[in-house]
Amino acid sequence: MTLLELLEGPLWIASASIFVVFAAFRLIVILFTGRREAEARPVGSPFLGALRTILGHFLPWRRLLGNGKAWFVTIAGYSFHIGLFVLLLFAAPHVEFIREKIVNLPWDPIPRWGFILSAQFAFAGLITLWVRRFVDPVVRLISRPDDHVAAGLTFIVMLTGCMALGEQSAFLRGLHLGLVELWLIYFPFSSLMHTFTWPFSRGFTGAMAGRRGTRA
C-alpha cells in the first residue's frame, strides 16, 4: 500500500471518524449537560428573539458602523469564510472526492476561474486576519495558542491544496490530504468548533433577550 493509498483509505476514514465522533460528542456535552435553569415568565418570544439574534449578528452592530475595525473584521471575515466554503464544496477536485467518499453532491463544480477567485478571497481574508492577531494589541492579548494553530493549520491546508491544483503529482495530493486529515483531527478539540457553536451562542443570547422583551 502506497502512502497515498493509506491517506486515501484507512487514514481518511480514521480522521473523518474522529472529526465526526468528537465534534458530535462536544456538541452533545455543550447542549445537553450542565444545569438547566427555570426561566422567568417571558415578556416577548424567546424563539423570535433567538432568530433575530442569529440573523442580526451576521451584520456588524449598528453602533460599530463607523468603526474601521468592525468593517475590517466583517469584510475580511466574510471574504475568508465565503471563499473557503466555495472552495470546500464547489472546487472540482473536492466535488469529485466528496462524491467518491461521502455523498453524491447534486451540484456541478465551479470552473477553474471560480476556484482561483474564491481562493484569492479566502487567502486575502485569512492572511490579514491572522496578521492582525500579531499587531493589534487587543487581539494579540486575547489570542490563544489555539487561535494561531487553527489559523496556521487552515492556512497550510489551503496552501497545499492550491499547490496541488495542477493535479499532476501524487505527492502534492497526498500532502494536501494528509494535512486535511490532521486538520480534521484537530478540529473538534479547538476553537474551530465555532463552525457549529455560533448559532447556539447567538440563539441563547437572543432567546434571553426575547424573553425579557429586549433585543440583543
Partner: peptide, 22 residues
C-alpha cells in the same frame, strides 16, 4: 524538482493577485 516546481508555480500564480491587492 518537478513536484516542487508545479507546487511553486501554482502557489505563485494564486498569490500573485493578492500581492497586487496588498
Amino acid at each position: 524538482h518537478s513536484i516542487l516546481l508545479t507546487a511553486a508555480m501554482q502557489a505563485h500564480n494564486l498569490f500573485g493577485p493578492i500581492f497586487a491587492l496588498f
